[in-house]
């Protein structure tokens, strides 16, 4: 034991300071806001500025603080459990996120594969093309989809002109539009990690398979796909996690009956002006999202161990 201890290099002050920076960042921009939200979730709605009670008043000192604490209750969480709207929202968010992730994978895999197999000199350009949409605001790109998908939109006009359909397709304000929006917006997040893992793949393995008489589709199934799994998993998590809490896409493209927790949260906060309940919704959303995030972390860690 003692030997081991002496072997471990002592952390210098400099490296401690370096580690402190991200920790401080997390405390200021994640932990502190989380506790503020958690605190509001335990309070009660009130006609006041801000619209909840109790609030802490530093001037009242310790007794005021204790008094305020006694005003806290878990009533808002009970309200959430009793009301099935919230559970339906969480479930339907998870469902929409899951289906979108699968569609993104089906669309994104061939793109990443094609990029990884393209001539080396093309790859930087192709990579650039995947990143290019980020140069335009996300919001504007979602708005553009309204122009494409609405009843008198570009898509319907094109299909009508070609004679494919006689009646305009109703896509705007439906769940389908939400899927299209999510798949489009998050595609680069799946393509990039997938491309990275496919590019690293050793081509000689496939050549060996071919030499041994393995047909290309089987070589893909037996070699390429298993070796690209880390990229698939990373990409899927990067799509799934933000998609669960997505607000802009269901709000702009979805219909009134598209239930997603991000939208429910928005309504609770802005339309209902119910800060305590919306804070409780946010806390639970975070707890639910912690599960896939921890899974993702574990996966990444295992990967790092495997590589080292």
């Amino acid at each position: 034991m003692s030997q081991k201890k002496s072997q471990a290099p002592k952390r210098s002050l400099g490296s401690k300071a370096l580690i402190a920076v991200p920790f401080l960042w997390l405390v200021i921009f994640f932990l502190a806001p989380f506790f503020i939200v958690f605190k509001i979730s335990l309070s009660e709605v009130a006609v006041a500025i801000p619209p909840y009670l109790p609030t802490f008043d530093l001037a009242e000192g310790w007794t005021g603080f204790v008094e305020a604490l006694s005003g806290f209750s878990f009533e808002n969480y009970i309200w959430l459990i009793e009301d099935d709207l919230y559970w339906k929202s969480y479930l339907s968010s998870a469902q929409i996120a899951l289906i979108s992730t699968l569609i993104t994978l089906v669309v994104g895999y061939p793109i990443a594969y094609g990029m990884a197999r393209s001539p080396k000199e093309w790859r930087p350009t192709l990579l650039m093309l995947v990143i290019l949409p980020f140069w335009t605001s996300f919001l504007i790109r979602v708005y553009a989809w309204i122009g494409i998908l609405k009843n008198e939109g570009l898509l319907n006009q094109l299909l009508l002109a070609l004679g494919v359909i006689n009646e305009p397709l109703v896509i705007m304000n439906t769940d389908l539009a939400v899927y299209i929006g999510i798949v489009y917006s998050y595609l680069p997040f799946l393509v990039l990690p997938l491309y990275a893992s496919l590019e690293k793949l050793d081509i000689s393995l496939l050549e060996a398979a071919e030499d041994l008489g393995c047909p290309p589709w089987k070589a893909f199934w037996k070699i390429t796909l298993p070796l690209s799994i880390p990229g698939v998993v990373a990409g899927c998590f990067l799509v799934f996690i933000p998609a669960v809490g997505e607000f802009v896409i269901p709000d702009l493209l979805g219909g009134s009956n598209t239930l997603m927790i991000g939208k429910t949260l928005w309504v609770e906060f802005f339309s209902n002006r119910d800060w305590p309940v919306s804070s409780a919704v946010a806390v639970i959303l975070l707890l639910i999202l912690v599960v896939p995030i921890v899974l993702f972390q574990n996966h990444q860690q295992k990967l790092a161990e495997m590589q080292s």
């Binding site: 009130a46 099935d84 709207l85 429910t264 309504v267 339309s271 209902n272 002006r273 119910d274």
Partner: peptide
């Protein structure tokens, strides 16, 4: 509406809109 009944009103409204 006072805050308590307002919560019920908005809850009913969300239910109406989402067709639940």
């Amino acid at each position: 509406y006072d805050p308590k009944i307002n919560r019920i009103v908005t809850r009913i409204w969300t239910a109406v809109k989402s067709g639940q």
